[in-house]
């Protein structure tokens, strides 16, 4: 039984290993079975622009890595911010970082649509608590 059945998790991370591990952790914790991953920001936007990305009726949780080549997490979210408010409100965004840097936290807090920075490796217990706080429908 999945804990948050009406929730899709989107992982944006250039490191395929981190994606594989986080996917496994999310599956083990039975958070949701609806998990998508993107190893480039470009692919994340392709998804957002697809019919699937714009679908309503469920919440989309974004786990956005900060350190990525080409376009880093902050730049990616700056582009995300250009989407209409009505579209964005379906998304809950967390940023992931392997080195919790004060400057990064400050930047994340100042970034629109970002809830907070989570430390890698992903702590499923913390994520679950946060999702409960979001008031997402559980089983």
């Amino acid at each position: 039984m999945k804990q948050f059945p009406n929730t899709r998790i989107l992982m944006v991370d250039d490191n395929d290993i981190d994606i594989a591990v986080n996917r496994k952790l999310l599956q083990l914790a039975d958070i949701t079975s609806d998990i998508r991953s993107f190893n480039q920001c470009k692919k994340f936007f392709e998804y957002l622009d697809s019919e699937d990305g714009g679908a309503k009726g469920f919440a989309q949780i974004v786990l956005m890595d900060i350190m990525m080549p080409v376009m880093n997490g902050f730049e990616c979210l700056a582009q995300f911010d250009e989407y209409p408010a009505d579209f964005k409100k379906n998304f809950v965004i967390y940023m992931l970082s392997s080195s919790i840097d004060r400057n990064d936290i400050r930047l994340a807090e100042a970034t629109p649509n970002v809830r907070r920075v989570l430390e890698k490796p992903l702590d499923i217990y913390v994520l679950r608590k946060l999702l409960e706080q979001e008031g997402l429908p559980t089983e």
């Binding site: 290993i17 591990v21 952790l25 392997s98 080195s99 430390e119 890698k120 490796p121």
Partner: peptide
């Protein structure tokens, strides 16, 4: 800043891998 990231990123990846490897 750079070095701490270069060192920590693989370390936390490994911690994550260990976690799933265990189960």
């Amino acid at each position: 800043y750079s070095t701490s990231h270069d060192l920590r990123a693989p370390l936390v990846s490994m911690l994550g891998i260990m976690e799933v490897l265990r189960v």
